[in-house]
Amino acid sequence: RGRTTFRTSRRGGGGAQDFEDPFSGIFGGGGGDRHYANMQQRGQDAEYNLSISLEESVLGADKKISLQMENRIEDINVKIPPGISSGKKLRLPGKGLAGFNGGLNGDLFLNINVLPHPIFARDGNDLYIEKTIKFTQAALGTTIDIPTLDGTTKRLKIAPGTQNNTKIRMKGYGVPGLKGSLKGDQFVKINVEVPKKLTDKQIKMIEQLAADGI
């Protein structure tokens, strides 16, 4: 397996930085007291950018990642909590770089990036999807099938006279809230399709509707 790129950060100052020898300042001839070389030192924290699917971010998941830590490759099991979003961090205590002279290991911080989904979009704890219907269905009303992110399909009633760009709310089918926040909803945006080509019969029928003031 190839080397996984990650970044480390020192405690007590400075931001994330590329990995370097954490002990170079001790043994590098800086003239410091040699007894510090025998002190326990906590390992550096590490950062890793983890991309997950929208399904994993909404439903939660168990993932395994492989990281090259110093001179070893470590497989780490990660539990993705339901409802996590891009920009959030997961902290894995003790999974960073090794400590020195028996010191504690650093922590591993996972920077979460949620990948785009082909049909669903997320805004906060709400999910959005678009559905196209015929203009006759919009005028007369109908019932359509709507997918949800967990793989199930729900029947959605379209009221007669539904307009283009109408948003219909599916309560409770959104993203679980983190830390006690409310679960979101799923919204369906209705696109009304107007036919580009009509038969002579269809034209006459629509002309009659127009004559009736519709």
Rank of each mutant, 00 (worst) to 15 (best):
G103K: 03
D62L: 06
G60T: 03
D107K: 06
K88C: 04
S86N: 04
D45F: 02
F120P: 08
G103S: 06
N49E: 13
K89Q: 11
G83F: 04
F100V: 13
F120N: 10
V58K: 07
E56T: 05
I80F: 03
V114E: 13
I112C: 11
D75H: 05
L67S: 06
G83C: 08
D45R: 02
D62Y: 06
L104D: 15
D62N: 15
L50M: 12
L59H: 05
L115Q: 15
R42W: 02
K64Q: 15
G94F: 05
I65P: 09
L108R: 00
S86R: 01
K89R: 14
G106N: 04
E70A: 14
S51T: 12
D45C: 04
P81V: 07
G87R: 03
K88F: 12
A46E: 02
P82E: 01
L97C: 06
L108Q: 01
Q40V: 03
N101F: 05
N38C: 00
N77Q: 13
L90G: 06
A98S: 12
Y48R: 03
E56D: 15
F120G: 10
E74F: 01
E47A: 08
A121R: 15
S51A: 14
S57Q: 08
R122T: 00
H117D: 15
K64G: 01
H117K: 07
I112Q: 11
N38K: 09
G60S: 09
L110H: 06
L67R: 02
M39N: 10
G96Y: 03
A121D: 14
G102Q: 02
F109P: 02
P118Y: 10
L108M: 14
